[in-house]
Design a protein around this nucleic acid. Structure first.
Length: 647
RNA sequence: GCCGGCGUAGCUCAGUGGUAGAGCAGUGGAUUCGUAAUCCACAGGUCGAGGGUUCGAAACCCUCCGCCGGCUCCA
């Protein structure tokens, strides 16, 4: 049978033989050897037997994957995880192997052992890993029957592997080996352990077997591997960069927010500078909503417990809610969501079909009980403010409303510097309320709205909320990490439960559809993501301090004060540094505070009645008149500025 | 919640059983300086909380709280 490898050539291969058989032939005609191959959507390594079932029986067309291709790392890291497992088994023969996949930035292996692995173990293991790599052990693949596999892994006392084999539906399973080590594995792998040119073990932590807390806990060893040392270095630098941008660190340094032990875990205090940013964002948010026909609401933080019975939250959401409180024989409940309140606003009067769509928005603070182990800075908290809205509309308006919401999301994200995102449509889960036909319609409406906007999406099957399907947006920050913020959900359940109606054209009652949406998600999380995205250097319009006036000598203080006041009167947020310190020192401090502009004033500036402007990016503009400065800053002092800059 | 690590001045951290330390920040003083750290002095601590071991505990043991990295979950 013929194997055609794109850009390389045509080769003959006996069906059922691995591509390794033609390795030497290929070596003769290529400069760079592929790591593996792609056949349609599947990856093939050198070890996998090529059967005539691939392609049209006579001919198999493969696309080679080279070390520089992103996908190549998945081959390499999968092998790296096997090497890790081999090293652990050599050092700790009683250890039992769980699973060991390649992941986004590296790989891990879950391993059971009588005691946890510590730093020292990790060093020893890494040393062993490197030895195995240096031996340049070739990998071998074999297909064996399930019975054989069970025999093999029970002789190795690998109970977890036996459990995995039982769940495999095929008659045969594949195993990969290198040296004395053998592992149940689907592949793909590289040719030899020697292909791993750079590897580093990063951390150990506990992980339940198969992610279920009822199962025993294994030790998960994380690591990463590359085809070159330089790439590893680059990756480690990126880790450092991420650490530097950590919003918890920057939040403290820039005095944006605090979470106090004495106040409570997951409860955020906004410090003046952080509160200022938040307020600017909130004001912008409100304006944009007013422009788009939303009406602003304020609702209480607690409500009678019965409300949450009607809404279904006590049945479906109880584990995320703080316990209720009794007062004067009535039970109250801290709110985990804003929706029921908005429903009562809807119900203030008899609604007509002519009124739709009705759009209520609220910056609503909710409280959700999160298990202590999952709290994380601003990104995962127990009290947070959603930029929430509920749109009530007729079925025929749903698609348009969803399109409008998408428009608004995309716009907001752009304003805040996010241009890329992943979109997921979550469909009907197993436990759901309502009519499947209506669900289908809603899912269609969601997809249609995305398609109208030309946005591509992935389907997350069965991941919808019990009351309706949803669209989730995960935004990509400058470091390529994804964060879930925006969510758009179609809801048939609550209108039903609260018996919402409107009067139609024919004077009959109909039930409205509710769209629940949060664009930024929660202000806490969004600000956390913003801090990391900008590394604390906020765009001018939301910088808590926009300008810092620095004097060179005490002589200039009166002039500097005049300049500062002029800038303040023009509406900018100004700080003064008139201390008798050296200019270099003051610049350094302002730089660390990430203030966008420093206005530097000395004798020369005073004499000519001008300023010297230094931006935090290091650019210097001398002899700038105050009028020019103010007009320049006014242009920059608007949310759309960076949008305009980009386009 | 579970597993591991950590908790010392406002911040970053040193201190492994014998009198609580450094740098930065703060305060006072000197200096008047041109685009990323001027010098001197002073002040600052219930060593996360509680209990125990010991002649003696920041350090060793126990319990609790919080934080960090994961597991699971989500805005």
């Amino acid at each position: 049978m013929k194997i055609v490898i794109q850009d390389i050539g045509e080769f003959d291969l006996q069906p059922g033989q691995p591509l390794k058989r033609i390795l030497s032939e290929i070596k003769k005609v290529v400069k760079k050897l592929p790591v593996g191959f792609k056949f349609q959507e599947e990856y093939l390594d050198w070890h996998t037997p090529v059967t005539s079932s691939l392609g049209n029986g006579e001919l198999v067309e493969l696309i080679p994957i080279y070390p520089d291709d992103k996908e190549a790392l998945w081959f390499l890291r999968h092998t790296a995880s096997h090497v890790l497992a081999q090293a652990v088994k050599e050092l700790f023969p009683e250890a039992k192997l769980g699973i060991g996949p390649a992941i986004e930035d590296g790989f891990y292996y879950d391993i059971y052992y009588t005691r946890p692995f510590n730093e020292e173990d990790l060093e020893k293991i890494e040393k062993k890993v490197k030895e195995i790599i240096q031996k340049r052990l070739p990998l071998e693949r074999r297909e064996i029957s399930k019975e054989e596999a069970e025999k093999l892994f029970s002789s190795l006392k690998e109970e977890f592997k036996l459990e995995l084999i039982k769940e495999i539906n095929e008659d045969t399973v594949s195993i990969y080996s290198q040296g004395d080590f053998v592992d149940l594995c689907r592949g793909p792998h590289v040719l030899s352990t020697g292909d791993i040119k750079a590897i580093k073990l990063l951390s150990v932590s506990g992980a339940y077997w198969r992610g279920d807390e009822k199962n025993p806990m294994l030790w998960r060893i994380y690591g990463t591997a590359f085809f070159s040392k330089e790439e590893l270095e680059k990756y480690l630098k990126r880790l450092e960069e991420i650490k530097k941008r950590d919003h918890r660190k920057l939040g403290k340094e820039l005095e944006l927010f605090t979470i106090e032990e004495a106040i409570g875990p997951g409860l955020v205090i906004w410090l003046p500078k952080g509160a200022l940013i938040r307020n600017l964002i909130e004001n912008f948010w409100k304006e944009e909503h007013f422009k788009r026909g939303y009406q602003l609401l304020y609702t209480p933080h607690i409500a009678l417990r019965d409300l949450w019975k009607v809404s279904g939250h006590l049945d479906f959401y109880a584990e995320n809610m703080f316990p209720s409180m009794e007062l004067e024989n009535r039970a109250y409940q801290l709110k985990p969501m804003n929706c029921p309140f908005h429903i009562y606003v809807y119900n203030q009067k008899r609604r007509s079909y002519r009124e739709f769509p009705i759009r209520f928005c609220e910056l609503g603070t909710v409280y959700r009980f999160e298990r202590s182990g999952v709290l994380h800075g601003l990104l995962r908290v127990r009290g947070f403010t959603q930029d929430d809205a509920h749109i009530f509309c007729r079925e025929d308006q749903l698609e348009e409303e969803l399109t409008n919401v998408l428009d608004l999301v995309v716009y907001f994200l752009k304003v805040f510097g996010f241009y890329e995102y992943k979109i997921f449509v979550s469909t009907r889960p197993e436990k759901f309320v309502g009519d499947p036909k209506v669900w289908d319609k809603a899912e269609e409406a969601l997809k249609k709205a995305l398609e109208n906007k030309g946005l591509s999406y992935e389907i997350d099957p069965g991941e919808g909320v019990f009351y309706g399907p949803k669209i989730d947006l995960k935004i990509k920050d400058v470091l390529g990490r994804f964060w879930q913020c925006s969510t758009i959900q179609v809801d048939f359940n609550l209108p039903e439960r609260f018996d919402l109606v409107y009067v139609g054209e024919n004077n009959k009652f109909y039930r409205p559809i509710m769209v629940h949406r949060a664009l930024l998600g929660s202000l806490e999380r969004f600000l956390g993501v913003l801090i990391e995205n900008y590394a604390g250097a906020f765009p001018f319009w939301i910088s808590p301090v926009q300008l810092k006036v620095l004097t060179i000598t005490d002589r200039t203080i009166p002039y500097a004060e005049k300049v500062a006041q002029t800038l303040e009167k023009a509406g900018f947020r100004v700080e003064r540094d008139f201390r008798s310190e050296k200019l270099n020192y003051k610049i350094r401090i302002a730089q660390q505070e990430k203030v966008p502009y420093m206005v530097i004033l000395g004798d020369k500036e005073e004499e000519n009645q001008v300023v010297s402007l230094r931006s935090r990016t290091g650019e210097v503009l001398n002899n700038l008149s105050l009028e020019d400065l103010i007009s320049k800053l006014k242009t920059e002092n608007q949310p759309y500025y960076q949008l305009n800059e980009r386009s």
